[in-house]
Amino acid sequence: MANPRFSIGDEVTVRDETTLFHTRTQKFARGRTGVVVEHRPEWVIPEDEAFDRMETGRKEPFYVVRFKQTELWPGYTGQSIDTLESEFSERWLVPA
């Protein structure tokens, strides 16, 4: 795969796609919008690796996305400045 589609600072939304059996895209992140804060190297996506396709699996760029906690959890009881970061392969992100 060529250049990463998203740049640092881009607002992205995590896709809410039906997933059977295995995923590493958490339910709490789906449909939520955050900001790309880091690029990560290309790896085999976990949806392929989990089914013994380490060698032949699809590779994609990964991104660190930072969310405001108040975006993730309605009724968040901490402070409004609090954040959460997690990583997603390119297929899981769309421009916000």
Binding site: Q26, R40, P46, G78, I81
Partner: peptide
């Protein structure tokens, strides 16, 4: 209250 708590959910290879 004015310190941002930043949770890192380690969900991939990092």
């Amino acid at each position: 209250d004015d310190v941002e708590v930043r949770v890192h959910d380690s969900n991939q290879k990092s």
